[in-house]
């Protein structure tokens, strides 16, 4: 699966949390690559492991989390074996930046925006304060925020403005990869549309690669070249947006596509009944089988592997596999 020009590769990554109820495998054997200039969308419902995956890639996991398998390579550098100094001064922010979930709240309410730029950048480079502020003004203009806002406090900005500031902040050291975790979820649709347009423009001007995380598959359709569908810690489908939206293979992906309203249609939208499994007591077999409309016996004993169905379209499902083998679908 790894391309020659890949800027990021994630190989068999596994992350487990220590919890009072026992080990919780939040990310399980996840692999993918990201090419230069590409946007990968990651979709999945709450608890699927999207944020855990993002923070594991940056090695910013909370103390009760452990990387139990795999590795992450950013532009040829192994994040796992890098020492803390290399991580902070050469990798994080310099090569790979992060816009955290609910990042409107990530800005410290006690400090003005300019101070937050200076502090963040100085933790990761030795740019002077003057350079930082000049670059910050430039970037704010680019993301549609008046640079006078540098001397504002976060609470003086709207939700949309704060999100734009966070995007500018992530761009400041010209990273090759940006990971954005639910960057538009808290915003009204009109402001969300503005941010999605902004991200499309940024991609045209800079050969930025990014990972865009959302629980809303329609939002992913607006920004991604490829999409990874996560369920209970695993990637269950992976492919180009063209392939996955026109020919979704996994029943979970099919369910997600039916759960979102489509304004162009007259029939209403559905939902996926039930809840994801308890990750502390994961039953054997496919994690989706209890909610799956097409599950068969084998699904409750053997975990389906992620298999290639052509044109780099992967899915982890016994039923799809069986049908394709028999030429039924």
């Amino acid at each position: 699966m790894s391309g020659l020009d890949s800027v990021l590769s994630v190989e068999h990554l596994g992350v487990t949390f220590e919890t009072p109820r026992g080990p919780l495998p939040a990310v399980n054997d996840v692999s993918f690559t990201l090419s230069g200039g590409e946007t990968l969308g990651i979709v999945g419902e709450s608890g699927a492991g999207k944020t855990t995956l993002a923070t594991a890639i940056l090695k910013l996991l909370p103390p009760n989390a452990k990387i139990v398998s795999g590795r992450v390579v950013v532009e040829g550098v192994d994040m796992m074996s890098a020492d803390p100094d290399t991580l902070n001064k050469k990798l994080r922010w310099n090569k790979i930046a992060y816009v955290p979930q609910a990042s409107q709240n990530a800005l410290d309410p006690l400090y003005k925006i300019d101070d937050q730029f200076v502090e963040t950048v100085q933790a990761h480079s030795d740019m002077s304060k003057k350079e930082i502020l000049a670059r910050a003004s430039e970037l704010l203009l680019q993301v549609g925020v008046d640079p006078v806002k540098l001397s504002s406090y976060p609470w003086q900005l709207s939700g949309g403005q704060k999100q734009r500031v966070m995007i500018a902040l992530s761009l400041i050291l010209n990273p090759s990869v940006i990971i954005m975790d639910e960057p538009t979820t808290a915003l009204d649709t009109i402001i969300q549309a503005q941010i999605l347009e902004l991200l499309r423009q940024l991609r045209e001007f800079q050969r930025m690669s990014s990972i865009f995380i959302s629980h809303d598959i329609s939002v992913i359709a607006n920004v991604a070249d490829r999409i990874a569908v996560m369920y209970a810690g695993k990637i269950v489908e992976l492919g180009t947006v063209k392939e996955v939206f026109s020919d979704p293979l996994h029943p979970y992906t099919q369910g997600l596509l039916k759960s979102v309203p489509d304004m162009r249609r007259s029939e209403s939208f559905g939902y996926i009944a039930g809840l994801p499994p308890d990750l502390v007591n994961l039953p054997p077999g496919c994690s989706f089988r209890e909610r799956c409309p097409v599950a068969v016996e084998i699904c409750s004993s053997i975990t389906p592997p992620l298999e290639n169905y052509g044109r780099n379209h992967f899915a982890a499902c016994h039923v799809v596999g069986g049908r394709r083998v028999r030429g039924e679908a």
Binding site: T189, Q194, R200, I217, V219, R264
Partner: peptide, 13 residues
């Protein structure tokens, strides 16, 4: 501004 589940159709602001 409402997104739809189709990569050919993009939101407009």
């Amino acid at each position: 501004a409402v997104p739809v589940p189709d990569p050919e159709v993009k939101v407009k602001s």
